[in-house]
Nucleic acid binder design. Structure first.
Lengths: 117, 117
DNA sequence: TTGACATATATAGATTATCTATATAAAATG
DNA sequence: CATTTTATATAGATAATCTATATATGTCAA
């Protein structure tokens, strides 16, 4: 199923921070890993990702470094800072509250229907 | 907790359609009911709601009518059409898939962490 | 070995769903 | 009678995506 892009808004940054909590990654890798873990629900665009990474680095949430693996081309790796970890915690809590609230509305049973005025 | 507004994107229309599934409502009432049911997580702005209602009506998802209750002022009520009901079903399914995918990423245990390259 | 495709990063400009601010008017409240 | 709340409406700003485009390296098949 193709989900509406607009739903992504606001959670993309959280997802990126979460990936980096597990270990340093480079941009293109994040796109691949995110697609794989979400069963292709998230097909993050390069044009979306890179500006977000630049912004997060500018705000001190991430730090980047060039690294060239043996027999691989050089890539730009990103590392989650302590500040970034705190942002991840905050955003995860927001996500939980947000989904709880939406589900409370959406999963309301028709039996509890208010009387029509 | 004040959740980031950007998270709302994409789900507002679904929430509105859901309210109308239970019975006809007028705009201002939707704002109140949504706040109440979400424990004030959703404080939908009038300036957000009314343009959405106009758009949904233009697209045939809703129908509106003026109605004056005994001893009340006249209000503009909205009714969910069959087309609107189908949209609600589609959007609810999208919501389920989207949250499932986000949670799959966010709730990944650190124990399953990939080896750092 | 060359041309096409995949990998990898980057940015400008468009799109879209919110927001704020503002307007109007009726009804309630003090 | 003045202020606040209820109720609807729209213009313009903001913000997070998107598409399109650019550049360069590495891989693979013809």
């Amino acid at each position: 199923m193709v989900i509406d892009r607009s739903l992504l808004t606001g959670s993309t940054t959280t997802l990126i921070l979460k990936l980096l909590e597990e270990g340093d990654m480079y941009g293109y890798q994040m796109i691949e890993v995110l697609a794989e873990r979400s069963d292709d629900t998230f097909q993050l665009r390069a044009g979306t990702l890179y500006p977000i990474l630049h912004g997060l680095e500018k705000d001190g949430m991430l730090e980047s470094y060039e690294w060239k693996e043996e027999g691989e081309r050089a890539r730009k790796y990103y590392h989650l800072t302590v500040k970034g970890k705190k942002l991840l915690e905050k955003k995860t809590a927001e996500w939980e509250e947000y989904t709880r609230a939406v589900n409370k509305v959406l999963r309301r049973r028709k039996e509890y229907e208010t009387v029509q005025r």
